[in-house]
């Protein structure tokens, strides 16, 4: 059964596009057929993050307006078999698409793909309404900042009002050290306000900037801890329970490395 998930946040710049790209890659790595859809018409970015910019011929608006077939607009990722991108139009704006048009498009995509991920634009206007229209559920992305949390809270209300099921949460740019010092909102602080299930706690790491500039999402990188968290998010999205958060893993110290080397504890231990 295929599913359409909208990735949204309210506030801009918290990492919706990065999350969409990485989650798409991670789900495709699990063998799923995934279409990532850039709904940020007029401000398209998802193609850049995925490194597929120079292959765009047709876009989402062309498909909705019937100027081309869906297959013609979908861009296949060379690195992964099941991953396709439907890019946004850069020369139009949000009003070029209606919720009805999006609903039809998503229905068409769901026939061919296991997962349809929609990268929602910031804000609560037309672009948001379009993005939510065809979705079966929502993932809310936020950062541990009061302004992002406030907007996420508003968006959760709007998602519920749109009669989608309870959304899930990904907290981006999380810094465990700052939380330990009391300088950043903790996971508990955030969940106290938003009160929805947490499915991702993505550490703040320079990998993300490097990978975005290269057009190769961090989820491809076996060694990146950010990529590891996105791969774990994909497992949680697929329904696997009790997948620990990378950000809360006990960091390697000389002592734990020594212990592991001596075979005292097998895998890296996990703190909850």
């Amino acid at each position: 059964m295929s599913e359409c998930i909208v990735i949204t946040s309210g506030k801009g710049g918290v990492g919706k596009t990065t999350t969409t790209a990485n989650l798409g890659v991670a789900l495709a790595m699990q063998g799923k057929r995934v279409a990532v859809v850039d709904a940020d018409i007029g401000l398209r970015n998802l193609d850049l993050i995925l490194g597929l910019e120079n292959r765009i011929v047709y876009d989402l608006v062309h498909v909705i307006e019937g100027e081309c077939k869906l297959r013609q607009a979908l861009i296949k990722d060379k690195r992964l078999d099941g991953l396709y991108l439907l890019p946004a139009a850069q020369t139009r704006d949000k009003n070029a698409v209606s919720p009805d048009g999006m609903r039809k498009l998503v229905a068409q995509l769901k026939e061919e793909f296991d997962y349809v991920l929609i990268d929602c634009p910031a804000g609560i206007e037309q672009g948001f309404k379009n993005s939510v229209a065809g979705a079966d559920r929502a993932i809310i992305v936020t950062t541990p900042e009061v302004s992002a949390i406030r907007d996420a809270d508003r968006i959760i209300g709007l998602v519920e009002a749109a009669e989608l099921p309870e959304p899930t949460l990904i907290v981006n740019r999380f810094r465990a050290k700052m939380v330990a010092r009391g300088d950043m909102m903790s996971r508990e602080d955030i969940l106290e306000i938003l009160a929805i299930p947490l499915i991702g706690l993505v550490p703040d790491h320079e990998d993300i900037i490097v990978s975005a500039n290269r057009g190769a999402p961090a989820a491809f990188d076996e060694k990146s801890i950010v990529g590891e968290e996105y791969r774990r998010i994909a497992r949680r999205v697929l329904g696997e329970a009790d997948v620990p958060f990378v950000a809360l893993d006990v960091p390697d110290t000389a002592w734990t490395i020594l212990k592991r080397w001596m075979g005292l504890s097998g895998a890296r231990e996990v703190a909850q």
Partner: peptide, 11 residues
Amino acid sequence: MTIHGTVRSGA
């Protein structure tokens, strides 16, 4: 009037 659940920002 009774309300069940969280009253969120903007409501």
